[in-house]
Design a protein around this nucleic acid. Sequence first.
DNA 1: CTGTTAGCGCCTTCAG
DNA 2: CTGAAGGCGCTAACAG
Lengths: 358, 358
Amino acid sequence: MATIQDVAEAAGVSVSTVSYVLSGSRPISAATKARVQEAMEKLGYRPHPHARALASKQSHLLALLIPPTRRGLGETEIDFTSHVSREALRAGYHTLLLTDEYDDLSSLQEFIHTSLVDGLILMEVHTYDPRVQLLSTTKIPFVLIGRCETIGDTTPDKSAERFSSEPSLNWVDIDFEGTLHTALEYFLELGHRDVAFINQSRAVYENGYGPVVRSFEALERARRLYAFEKLEHYFCEATNEAGYEITRHIIQQEPEIHALIVMNDRALPGVYRALYEEKKRIPEDVSVLSMVSSERAAEMLYPPVTTLEFPAQVLASQAVQQLICQIEGKQGGPLHNTLRCPLIERGSTGRRADKDSC
Amino acid sequence: MATIQDVAEAAGVSVSTVSYVLSGSRPISAATKARVQEAMEKLGYRPHPHARALASKQSHLLALLIPPTRRGLGETEIDFTSHVSREALRAGYHTLLLTDEYDDLSSLQEFIHTSLVDGLILMEVHTYDPRVQLLSTTKIPFVLIGRCETIGDTTPDKSAERFSSEPSLNWVDIDFEGTLHTALEYFLELGHRDVAFINQSRAVYENGYGPVVRSFEALERARRLYAFEKLEHYFCEATNEAGYEITRHIIQQEPEIHALIVMNDRALPGVYRALYEEKKRIPEDVSVLSMVSSERAAEMLYPPVTTLEFPAQVLASQAVQQLICQIEGKQGGPLHNTLRCPLIERGSTGRRADKDSC
DNA sequence: CTGTTAGCGCCTTCAG
DNA sequence: CTGAAGGCGCTAACAG
């Protein structure tokens, strides 16, 4: 392995010169720069990451804190993860995976303390996330992502105020309210006047999980904004059985409802099954729309579910870029961004069957 | 951040002494060791990873090369990934994620060249995988995993010989033949005499993708080993449509077949749909068994699919441990291990309907 | 059993 | 525009 020294000798310059052509942080004459680059080329020189990290205090390493694989929407995680990795690479950073072992605060603290990485990305932040508080007390750059936390929410509830007073936090999240509106407006256009929203479980709601809290509240508000006859909200465990039960319940108790918005991938198969068993055709009799979901999950069902898709790519890209800006001190103001999920029509949604034609 | 120097001073010893109580690679009196540890405790000392890496040439970093998220069985990947990370952590290593950017050989080479990591794990190895050849020419430790490659196969075909002569390779893989036997024996017990195996696509087969090649060959051999009336093999694209078509074809052309083994998660929903449409009840009329699959995928369908489950945990654990042994020079002989997928009954499989009772 | 010290490979201030 | 030199924090001989 050639070292910077070797390059310097080969090019007939000093090591610092080589270092500067590498970093570009000081003007170098075209001639010597060319010579140095040639030497690097010839020797196949690669700067040694750890030496660089030691000297510059920048490891060019990021950490991604992933949630436990058990619960959660799941499908999208690997996707998001690899997008982060890819995006980071583009900026010259590598990504290190931290599992839920680091839900334990003290190990997280230790980890940061070692300064192995330059910054972190947190997935599945909760409203009162102790990890966020911990990180805030350190000076390590970090960004929160997606469909999780209530920080900076415009909702005038306490939890939001609590955090929105902390403008130093950087996050990018799904715009749950906007996404829900997309769903509702879509159904309105299709002629639906009675729709049910199947959320995740009440337990998760009470635990302050952002996506659930925010979509719940958004639905409340939507009642006034839109001209629906019915706009029901249901909590639902993340299981097939729960989806099945809730759907049967809806069909039997709310027969006018012919449109379902589901934000619960794991319950979705149960929803479908209940519909089949009740002889409801999708989408002729009932439309189903899956919110914050993924293509993979959508294609597991028949007919494939129309989804509001989790924009993993964009989210990852924004998070990484902002994080790196923080790290490199090129702050362009804090990142507080929400994204709507784009609608992908697949065949589980259609016009409300004309009541007269029944 | 306290340094080793600070600890040394606080404990009234030299830095090397501190270093040695850390590594344990030289006897230290109980008294001084205690003093040093106390000092570390008090100062909240953590060794600096990059300094250590630079001095010792061991970064305690691993890299996991993950396949593109697009194709493949998919579901299991995130699972495997986090298991690797967790297992590595247990041994004091961190894991870094490398996406398919590194399918490009030259970037892989560069990466290794920088010696950022101590070793790598490769997923989705192909029979003639240039990455393996590249890695073999370097001295960096690596291990291949899972349901992928033909290296070390006992199959007497050329590709196997090619690689099995390279005993230095370390791998752990699914035992496709054994797993298939589990499936077949299971169906025999249930009284099935006519079964179809739905594999992945012919293109993937021709590309030499291990799981497909090996299960294909295993099926050929199984014809002689077991007393099936019919044991058909079908290639199938990894799509719903393909699964649907092939299943319809089977139902219509091979009406005796009442048992399906599917090693194609993405086609599986189509298989189910075809069965529904043809009014075949699962499992009363047709049994379906999904091979090398995951719980997540299994629960997306109704009835949930009986699977032969990808043992992500065990695979990850073995791969990591062996890799770390290599790194630390504690070779316990090369790792050449195959694992059967455990059978998880879920409700999509049942006894062959008695012919007389029809 | 413990201390001294020379690097590991690179960055970066300080001189020129 | 370029060099020289002092670390960064730790490891591992080499000496006692």
